[in-house]
Nucleic acid binder design. Structure first.
Lengths: 221, 221, 221, 221
DNA sequence: CATGAATGAGTATTCATTCAT
DNA sequence: TATGAATGAATACTCATTCAT
């Protein structure tokens, strides 16, 4: 239960490491429990119990239940960023990057349904206290995609649309897809979903010239 | 619940209409307060206060806070059905019906943002107690649209796709749009949104022949 | 449901009769429900429902839940008096009267276990508000028995004991018997119990001369 | 509930004694208040106030008002066992043991009238939820007395009666005595009561030979 | 008389947070 | 640093009672 392994020699700032190490131990369990019981119904004691530590220890690392929850959401969204970045790395073609990003997005929430729950919980509980973390995440990461879309429109590979609206609408479709899919709890396969989504998106956005390449953009990988 | 008949004495007759009348008085206020404070943070006392009645009276008409909340959601979704039905009534062309329905959907939640809140709250609070009301609503109402989509595919006006997947993906897009739009609290105009959505949807679904009519399907009314 | 039969001609004070008639309809049901659910957990509405009348009607005949309950206890104790008086009527021998009275006492509570419940409930709920009804009943009815006991002591048929203490101890034994027997809910037979009790009582109270007649006093009837 | 051991950190060690120590502080006050106000009318807050602690602390040691109450009853009955055992210790003669036990029983409830209240309250409130604690207590402790009574019958010191019935009837007499005595709130002296009771019991149970020793068994000590 | 809609006081329990050890 | 005992604010729901019809 205590993987306080990799202790290096003295002289190292042990405390700082220990702190983030503990956080990394706490957040996954917190995510799991918040997702399964909901924010309001989650007892911090239960999280401590599952970790085999005392409730006070949780409060050492997170100043409040709210902060703990928000840290869990943050961690979830950071994971999404990582997954998307990894998926597009090394892909030179921008359109294929978009396709890969969309697939990575859906795959991530397929593998981490708890994060969907956290997003919904956050919205429900902190309605007026806080801008949704997923929107913050979007704002932080959307810039490069705007560039991509603008280029694609300019170069004639995309129809001449407004890039803000395009990314917005695609975001809506994507979040709508994960929300309704996991709300439905039908465990629908990620693969078929992402192909449907890509099909709708690209058939709608591609220029006639690029439409000829549709199959290529839709191929799974 | 109402064996009003075989009573003997005179006494005040049980007013059958009074009940539904009171419910209609209570639900809008309940909707408003649940939406603005969230389910958990709403005190039934506050609803009663706003109505100028006693808390016990609320409990006279709704057996529990939960039932009151769910009745409010139900009422919200019933309103959506009504709005959609009204919007397509008298429109003979099926594709135009689809366009009208999509616009009515977005318009409804534009006019009733509280209902979006209720849907999110419901999902957050009653995760495992209840199938989301909006899914029940979808299941009750989706049948005719499946027929429409099938016909349109058969007649060649739509590309030959699976009607279940089409309606599912459009649903995802629509719910995603209302969720993210109102989550963002940016009060984005309904009109631009619906045009974007219709644009994406029809550019993706229409056959080449029908694409020529795209502008007609996108026109506001 | 309305046995408003025996209406006589006008000019008779109908109301008074109707009132006591209604009370007689209400009290048995009230007794049953109070006994089965306890005073605190009994909802007056439930009593009204079982009677097929409105709650307000119950309040027409009894000013409060407490008065209703106490009336039910009273009715139970009045029934006990009646049963005991009936059992001794026509029995000339005083000792046999005592035996009959003890048997009648036990038999009554055997047939009316609800009354035992009411006595306990009364004691638990109205501890300091009211002298227990069964004690009032005892005080009202004990006088003649004191005379009997005194006579029996004087005449040498009973050992020379104090009649107050004798009746007190026998009362204790009797109430203790019904309390513990019905508390135990073992449905023990009344007959064996009353024989045991009489055996103890008379073996303890009878003079040597009367002990020869013990079997006669213990015989069932 | 207490895996105090395999904890890692230093921190305040869980004080095992503290728990039972606190319980011992809480139960007497709880007993007093439950007895004086009745179970239903007792507010846990009041118990906490009397103890000078927070309501939450009471719930720290007892999971519910019901458990707290039942613990108080249990403690009361445990006290009875202790008192009876202490009273018979060192007394070799079985009949004198019986006399001492009966006196100890009456003396205990004379000194602890609150426990009588608790027994009645328990019966009234938890009628169908729980076997009365005093019956459980009786079942746990009656066995040795059955042996004593059987021996006394065999050896001819008692009349040849059934030991189960004898102990049952004596129990009825004893519980009836404490119930009615304290119900009456007349503060009758314990001594005269126990002598009356013993008088009735032994005059009924003793063989003719032992009856000669009656005075010896009735002497106070 | 009978009814039943309306009232609102009353209460057990939970749990985030603190802080002495 | 880790602990867990102590705190006390916060809240849904019940039901005796009233009274307009």
């Amino acid at each position: 239960m205590t993987n306080t392994l990799n202790r290096r020699g003295p002289g190292r700032p042990r405390n700082l490491e220990l702190a983030s190490q503990r956080c990394e131990e706490i957040l996954p369990i917190a995510t799991e429990i918040f997702a399964s019981k909901g924010y309001a119904s989650t007892d911090v004691q239960e999280i401590a119990d599952r970790l085999g530590i005392a409730k006070g220890t949780v409060y050492h690392y997170f100043p409040s239940k709210e902060q703990l929850f928000l840290a869990a959401v943050d961690r979830g969204m950071a994971g999404l960023s990582g997954a998307i970045n990894a998926s597009v790395a090394g892909e030179p073609d921008t359109i294929k990057q978009i396709a890969r990003a969309i697939r990575a997005f859906l795959k991530y929430f397929d593998s981490n349904p708890d994060v969907v729950e956290l997003i919904v919980q956050e919205r429900a509980e902190f309605r007026d206290r806080k801008k949704p973390t997923y929107l913050e995440h979007r704002e932080r990461n959307i810039r490069p995609w705007h560039e991509h879309f603008r280029s694609l429109c300019k170069s004639g590979r995309f129809r001449p649309l407004n890039e803000e609206q395009m990314t917005q609408t695609i975001s809506n479709l994507l979040y709508g897809t994960i929300f309704t899919t996991y709300f439905a709890r039908e465990g629908q396969a990620f693969e078929s979903l992402s192909t449907q989504v890509l099909s709708l998106v690209f058939a709608g956005l591609l220029s006639d010239a690029e439409l000829a390449n549709l199959d290529k953009y839709l191929e799974f990988d």
